[in-house]
């Protein structure tokens, strides 16, 4: 079967069985390797992408259900050489990135949060991040970055 959807703003077709995970389509057919296969069961958040602006676990999302929807991945946030987004800048500035495996998922979760919430406090950021596991940072710097990025977003 063939499924049409927009991927980072461009219309694409995925010709693949309908139960194929969206993550497989992104990584193997489109070369977008930011979203990672971590646990493969929707618990770790390393495969987080946005579908119609909401974070989803791409490892559990059947490609059949993405037809007609808008998918955004970390690769679509800032073009190569272009300025990073406030979320990406804040994670770098606050030392929120260590090994980096979880970060594409964290960035997409926080991008969706900042798009829907004008002012993010630490509690809101923690709640939003309950589905993103990081085994390096202890989360404090990621949460600080989220709060700081929220402030920057207001000024932008």
């Amino acid at each position: 079967m063939s499924y049409s959807f927009t991927l980072n703003g461009q219309t694409v077709e995925a010709t693949t069985p309908g139960l194929t995970p969206l993550l497989t389509v992104l990584r193997d057919q489109h070369g977008l390797q930011g979203a990672k296969l971590g646990c493969g069961e929707g618990r770790c958040g390393s495969c987080t992408v946005l579908v119609d602006d909401q974070p989803v676990a791409a490892c559990l999302f059947p490609v059949a259900n993405v037809a007609g929807r808008a998918v955004r991945t970390v690769e679509g946030l800032a073009a190569p050489g272009a300025p990073l987004t406030p979320v990406q800048d804040a994670l770098l500035d606050h030392g929120g990135v260590q090994c980096g495996a979880c970060i594409p998922g964290v960035v997409m979760t926080l991008t969706a949060l900042l798009e829907s919430e004008p002012a993010v406090d630490a509690a809101t950021a923690k709640e939003a991040l309950t589905g993103n596991i990081c085994r390096c940072t202890g989360y404090v710097k990621i949460v600080e970055a989220a709060v700081a990025a929220s402030g920057r977003g207001d000024q932008a």
Binding site: L19, E41, G42, A57, L60, P62, A64, N65
Partner: peptide, 26 residues
């Protein structure tokens, strides 16, 4: 097939998938 978060893990539970799923998404 609704959201798929349970069915997509059928293999992890050792279940044999059905031959066909009827998505309710549309």
């Amino acid at each position: 097939l609704a959201g798929g978060t349970w069915i997509m893990r059928a293999g992890l539970r050792g279940e044999t998938p059905r031959r066909c799923y009827v998505s309710l998404d549309r």
